[in-house]
Simulated assay, not measured.
Amino acid sequence: MRKLSKKGKVYAAAATIALVAASGGAAYAYWTTTGTGSGSAANSAGGGTVTLRANFDAGSLTPGGSVVVTYVADNGSLTTDTKVGALTVQSITTDSSGCLPGWFTADANTGNATVLHNSTNTTVGTGTLAFVNSTANQDACKGATVTINVTSN
């Protein structure tokens, strides 16, 4: 192997520095870039609605008495769980014209209950249905069906 002269060593060093600088510059240009863009996707329209029901034993309800109500929900969505917020009793109806809805009161105690997708009879709250004792004849309520209409938010 031949020895390099002092001038050859300087040229070799300069060539090495130039090669390293050129390689570093190329790497810098490769890694440095700018750009813009965006992406989008539409979310589901929501989990749909749940069906709410009030379950209670009306057969034991008499004037002046009350029964415990269990509020349940069905979620027919095959993929989305949902939460049922506060329940509000909207109205009480009866199937007998002489059995006045005003003779009944109901409340609903609930929180944010999760109703799993494709589920039925998930308890979402409790409450009380009371049959107010009136001075009027309430015989029309014997055997009548009482319905509690409830909503959630």
Rank of each mutant, 00 (worst) to 15 (best):
A73Y: 10
S134T: 06
L78D: 15
C141F: 10
T36A: 05
K142N: 14
T120M: 07
T93F: 06
T79Y: 14
G64I: 03
G127Q: 05
T32N: 11
T122C: 11
V89T: 09
V84A: 00
V132A: 13
V115Q: 09
R53H: 12
D74T: 11
G48I: 00
S40T: 15
S44A: 13
T123Q: 15
T110I: 04
T126D: 06
T82N: 13
Y71W: 09
L129F: 08
T79W: 13
L87F: 07
T114M: 13
T93R: 00
A29T: 12
S91I: 08
T122M: 13
T62R: 14
V84H: 06
V68A: 15
A136I: 03
T80L: 12
G98C: 11
S77V: 09
N109E: 14
V72E: 13
A140R: 09
T70V: 07
G125A: 01
Y30R: 05
K142R: 11
S97T: 11
A130I: 00
T93M: 09
G143L: 10
L100F: 00
A58S: 14
L87T: 00
V67D: 04
S91E: 13
K83T: 15
G46K: 03
T145V: 15
V68N: 15
A106D: 06
V67M: 08
G47M: 05
G65M: 10
V132Q: 15
Q138M: 02
G47V: 03
G125Q: 05
V68D: 15
V68C: 07
A29S: 13
Q138L: 00
T128Y: 02
K142W: 09
A54F: 06
V69S: 02
D74G: 03
V89Q: 03
A73M: 06
T93G: 02
G111T: 13
W31A: 05
S38W: 07
S44F: 03
S60A: 14
F104H: 06
A29R: 01
G59L: 06
K142T: 10
T126L: 08
T34S: 15
G48E: 02
D95A: 13
N55Q: 12
V67I: 09
T120G: 09
V115Y: 09
A130H: 00
Y30M: 05
A58P: 00
L87V: 08
A41P: 01
W31T: 11
G125I: 05
R53K: 15
A113E: 04
T123L: 10
G59D: 14
V72K: 08
F131L: 01
F131I: 07
G102H: 00
G39S: 13
G59Y: 02
V68L: 15
S77I: 02
T70D: 02
Q90E: 13
G37P: 04
A42E: 11
H117I: 04
V50H: 08
T128K: 10
T128R: 06
D74Y: 02
A29V: 12
A106Q: 01
Y71G: 10
T49P: 00
G64H: 01
